[in-house]
């Protein structure tokens, strides 16, 4: 190992030791900073949890979807065969089910239940014949459904192609709105947390002015004296992030039975899931960033020797 590397390692060890000593020297103030960060991140985490689950709905939704191809009313029997072989040959399509006009009416009658008698008054069956195309599991995303629908739309004899795009785009719009609100609220919360953390760390700097004075006296540069405070902020931020995720998990598990109705309103029959690994890491990283930035702000604004 080169001397320069050793120097860096010794410095890093010193900074870490000093940061830990600093945290231990003012446990109450440190705890306040950690709790503040944790509370802000908990709220951000709740939003992230909701958004991640709603994203899941869109992903999973595709798996149960089919592309419905409505044919023109007067389609001939032999044309149905031709359509079937044509649709089967589309890349990704694994199943084609023909729903005749009569079958469509039966389904409709079944769906409306008791009021099915109303349909008896019809002179003619108004429902068109259709094909239901199911896709390979790997291709069952909304995008793939749209591609398949696009390739069918406009074929002579095809009246309309549907894959619940309106519902999907409505849900997507709702999700975008939730994302914007989440980002705005998250930003405001993070900013508020940043100010509180900066203030808290500034208090610890004032409380330990003697230490900064003494370090300056023995020839420590501002950076040398400041790095342990930055590290303290970073450690507090990480601790806040980890606490927020832990608390969110406990609340999520404890409240699951009471929030089932809310979840099913948002997600339908897709079961809710806890934060993904990426989401968890994001929360901890935001915490670390808040702590680091809070310390930097405090160090810049605090009067130092």
């Amino acid at each position: 190992m080169r001397i320069g590397d050793q120097f860096t390692i010794h410095r890093a060890q010193y900074f870490l030791r000093s940061a830990v000593a600093g945290l231990r020297a003012s446990p109450v103030t440190s705890l306040v900073a950690v709790v503040t960060i944790a509370m802000a991140l908990l709220l951000i985490g709740v939003f992230l949890l909701l958004l991640e689950n709603m994203d899941q709905v869109l992903d999973r939704f595709g798996e149960s979807l089919v592309v419905t191809v409505y044919l023109e009313n007067n389609v001939a029997e032999e044309d149905v065969q031709a359509f079937q072989s044509r649709f089967s040959s589309i890349e990704g399509v694994v199943g084609t089910v023909f729903v005749s006009k009569e079958e469509a009416l039966d389904r409709f009658r079944h769906r409306v239940g008791d009021q099915g008698g109303l349909l008896d008054g019809l002179d003619e069956n108004p429902l068109p014949p259709s094909f239901e195309l199911s896709l390979e599991k790997e291709r069952s995303s909304i995008e793939s459904l749209a591609l398949v629908a696009q390739s069918i739309d406009g074929i002579p004899g095809v009246d309309e192609v549907s894959y619940a795009q309106e519902w999907v785009s409505g849900y997507e719009n709702f999700l975008s709105l939730a994302r914007v609100i989440g980002a705005a609220l998250g930003g405001v919360l993070a900013f508020a947390a940043l100010l509180i953390v900066a203030n808290t760390i500034q208090l610890t700097i004032y409380a330990r002015r003697d230490e900064l004075d003494i370090l300056a006296l023995v020839g420590a540069s501002r950076t040398f004296a400041g790095v342990p405070f930055l590290l303290e902020g970073l450690l507090q931020g990480c601790a806040g992030g980890v606490s927020a995720v832990a608390l969110l998990y406990v609340l999520y598990e404890l409240l699951l039975p009471y929030t089932a109705a809310g979840w099913s309103f948002l997600l339908g029959n897709v079961p809710p899931q806890f934060l993904s690994d990426a989401g968890t890491l994001l929360i901890v990283a935001v915490g670390a960033g808040l702590g680091l930035l809070g310390s930097a702000v405090a160090l810049t604004t605090a009067k130092r020797p």
């Binding site: 231990r24 370090l215 006296l217 023995v218 040398f224």
Partner: peptide, 20 residues
Amino acid sequence: KLLQSRTVEENVAVALEVLG
């Protein structure tokens, strides 16, 4: 002007730690 949170040897060592 000693660091109360550090031991005697840590207080003395700080002058050398600054030097790396």
